[in-house]
Design a protein around this nucleic acid. Sequence first.
DNA 1: GCCTAAAATGATTACGTTCCCATACGCGTC
DNA 2: GACGCGTATGGGAACGTAATCATTTTAGGC
Lengths: 349, 349
Amino acid sequence: MLFRAMSKRKSQNPTIKDVAKLAHVGLMTVSRVINDHPAVRATTRKKVEAAIAQLGYQQNEAARLLKGQRSKIIGLIVPDLSDIFFAACAHTVQHIARTQGYMTLVVASERDSELEVQQAELMAKRMISGLLLVSSIRDDDDRIERLQNLDLPIVAFDRPLPGLNTDAVLVENRTGAEDAVGHLLKHGHQRIACVGYDENVYPVRERIAGYRHVLQNAGQKPQIALGLLTMDAVRSWLETVLATKTPPTAIFALNHRTAIFCLQVLTEKGIKIPEQMALVGFDDFDLATVVKPPLTTVAQSPVELARRSMHLLLERIQGQRGDSEHEPAKILLPAKLMIRESCGHHPKK
Amino acid sequence: MLFRAMSKRKSQNPTIKDVAKLAHVGLMTVSRVINDHPAVRATTRKKVEAAIAQLGYQQNEAARLLKGQRSKIIGLIVPDLSDIFFAACAHTVQHIARTQGYMTLVVASERDSELEVQQAELMAKRMISGLLLVSSIRDDDDRIERLQNLDLPIVAFDRPLPGLNTDAVLVENRTGAEDAVGHLLKHGHQRIACVGYDENVYPVRERIAGYRHVLQNAGQKPQIALGLLTMDAVRSWLETVLATKTPPTAIFALNHRTAIFCLQVLTEKGIKIPEQMALVGFDDFDLATVVKPPLTTVAQSPVELARRSMHLLLERIQGQRGDSEHEPAKILLPAKLMIRESCGHHPKK
DNA sequence: GCCTAAAATGATTACGTTCCCATACGCGTC
DNA sequence: GACGCGTATGGGAACGTAATCATTTTAGGC
């Protein structure tokens, strides 16, 4: 037992000291080589590098942290990790991070801005190198200040950080919605309803704005139903609306879930899609082509979103874009209307 | 600028030293209070706790790490984070970890066992408290040893760790498959095919075993098609099989993806489900009720899987179940056949 | 070849914690 | 009343690194 413990100490990871001894140089020289400080002669550097290789030396993160260095970890906060969209984002983020020598701390904020900020603070205390954030913070929330005080490279993605001038990668939700609704209009729909649940999320607000804008230009009256959280809610809304004299002829669903609910309720009621009711959703998902009928949706790419965000973050971390008050980057990713069958105008091949 | 820096230093987080000064005790006493060591008088403890509260003191992880303590981080390695099943697991794991004061380091191994072990080693170097692992290591892979040398509480979930006697939480894949195939048999199917892609994954092997077992008991000949990675592969398999004299009357799909592919190909070919071909899948997913027809599947709960795994891990970490060679726990979670319509025997309500 | 400036290197210290050991204090015992 | 013994407490060292600053070496100009 004692033996084990001793031998274990002995075979402990090599330190900077061991490297220094082996290379016949001082500690600082080794440290400089590691952090590739310029003030090391090429020959010395060679020696040290050889020693490092021979011992298989690796930096001790804990000690670096204690000296106030940042940890090679990036943080990722999304509203809901079990949401297929954010899961895809997380996957890509983690992948890129790994290939760049970072690890990824992942947290789901569950759309609670207090929780979100708390976790961000915890991450900051762990000296993460940067933070990727799909924020649930609203405009009027002063918690934004606490984020600012973190003194950390932050990239907001999917949603902007109200009042905080960070890098951001967003999707053209508005244009996407306009394309979708425009497509329906172009094919003669006179009454297009718009359904969803949470009107307080930035992307959804943008989509609604796009919907409104197009309808207004066409001189049509918007008809918006929000708060439709469950399939039952969708069903009762639909029943109400179908009972009116002039029910809508098309539905624009503001998100993936609502689109599916609509699809199911309409099918269950025997209403033919797209003949009796056209349907367009938002957010693509792998099963969209499999449902009956294949769903026309506005697709946004979580992979691209994550990729661009990570690149911005890494640039910031590596100080390529001015450590401080360089103008933050704003990237807008396109949303693409995937025309399938539920909208009624599938381009026949 | 200089001012900023200075005031920042000044207002730095309080240390154990500050607490000691304020409480008029030595450093060690404070340390003992924090780690609730018994050898502290109640009155002293009170004093120290008051000081801690007053200063808002929080432990410095980096310093603890340097002294060889474990970090309050748990690691999670899954094959693919963008897979809805593992994403749900990750969500739950992260949630429980958070409520217990841990953060979660997440990595997707991309089904590469070398990558998996490398990442596990990196995590171990970061002194995580424990590791949750959906392993891609095969039976004959000696990388398992490297995992063992990590000297870390590990819980294997969804798949066992071959040759490593850790805690494990698994699903009754075999029984689930038997139920599914049994159900088809019971309703008169004489030729049941079994399709999937990766036969090398533990859960899938178990499902195949279940399928084989039931068919054998019934005196039927198994008909297994593997490697069907894409929809095209499924289509060509189906075409081949339908061209035979005695095509199957039912399909048991070994996973969620293959089930969907089957569904789509069958639909596209105008083959009526379940009349002309019954279909049962494995793995439930939220859209299973929405597709046409609603898919009968064997459901396993990612949430439960993650919950049980985390509980085991936390118990290990907190040393409740004997730090060392206590008998590892093996938990088997049920898989439940969700009978809907694609199997042809939906119990009419 | 010498002097100076610049470049390269090393010794020391500090980061905040925990561990090992030493000390102080009660309290019962002979 | 001194002695031991156990419980509480504090002092000092150590963990591995990076910053500061002092020192040595090198190169370059005359």
